[in-house]
């Protein structure tokens, strides 16, 4: 491990240690925050009991569905919009302001339309994540070098082969950025929707535990979600690094 990585590890460990000490010594009331070791042990008990299994499957399944839909539909929409320059120019102002307006405020409206079910959560998740994928696809297709079109003609590649062998690899880094954002937005939107109002799921569990003053359960659930989100982000970051290394390797 590098020196900076080591320092970072020590800083994080010191912060957690300080929290542990402050909670154990009573400096922080246990009704506000419980010690990190207690959070971990509460989570361990909760996971071992299997009581969370249904909600974990539900929430992670929903996040997976939202991410998959956003990536596939966003990619398709990006290709379609890229092929229609006039539509694209007209849509540009919408793309530019989309993430500046609180789209999430439509979640209650979706509940009013579809009822308190899975549907509003999936829709608000896709609505939050898909536009990042569309924008990334447009960016990626913009950056495909023109010379690749000539290469395709020289090699007499068909349209499909050109797309698969030349355009897709050239646009790949931008598409990956879109995927990363879609994953992040999908996570945030689904958990937020569950937390605010939903029939079940981990977000709802946290809200219920908060309402019941059940701090052990609440902090165990929070810890679980933070660990999962951090892990997913770390995996995506690792893939990103590997792609970047391979691309720079290509050039040398």
């Amino acid at each position: 491990m590098t020196r900076i990585g080591l320092i970072r590890l020590l800083v994080v460990a010191a912060l957690i240690g300080a929290l542990e000490l402050a909670c154990r010594s009573g400096l922080i009331d246990h009704r506000v925050i419980i010690a990190p070791s207690q959070m971990a042990s509460a989570l361990w008990t909760l996971l071992a009991s299997g009581a969370l299994d249904a909600d974990i499957a539900r929430t992670l399944g929903m996040i997976g569905l939202v991410i998959a839909l956003s990536i596939v539909l966003g990619f398709a929409a990006g290709i379609a919009i890229h092929a229609l320059p006039r539509l694209r120019r007209a849509l540009d102002p919408f793309f530019a302001t989309y993430y500046a307006v609180p789209v999430f405020i439509f979640y209650p409206v979706l509940i009013a339309i579809f009822g308190l079910s899975v549907m509003p959560i999936v829709l608000i998740g896709v609505a939050t994540a898909i536009v990042a994928m569309i924008i990334a696809t447009l960016n990626g297709l913009d950056r495909v070098p023109r010379v690749l079109g000539k290469v395709a003609r020289v090699h007499r590649l068909g349209r499909f082969a050109t797309a698969l062998q030349l355009q897709l690899p050239a646009a790949a880094p931008y598409l990956f950025t879109g995927i990363k954002l879609a994953v992040s937005y999908g996570f945030i939107a689904v958990i937020a929707a569950e937390f605010i109002l939903s029939p079940a799921g981990l977000g709802r569990d946290i809200a219920d535990a908060y309402a019941d003053f059940n701090n052990r359960r609440m902090y165990a659930l929070i810890l679980f979600l933070l660990v999962v989100a951090t892990l997913v982000n770390a995996i995506l970051h690792g893939l990103d690094m590997r792609f970047a290394a391979r691309r720079s390797g290509d050039r040398s």
Partner: peptide, 23 residues
């Protein structure tokens, strides 16, 4: 040292921390 910590905090679903903020 701090940048990766801030970046990973940035992409967390912060709504999970709202009960803590409320407490």
């Amino acid at each position: 040292v701090g940048e990766p910590i801030l970046v990973s905090l940035y992409s967390l679903p912060k709504i999970t921390l709202y009960p803590v903020v409320l407490l």
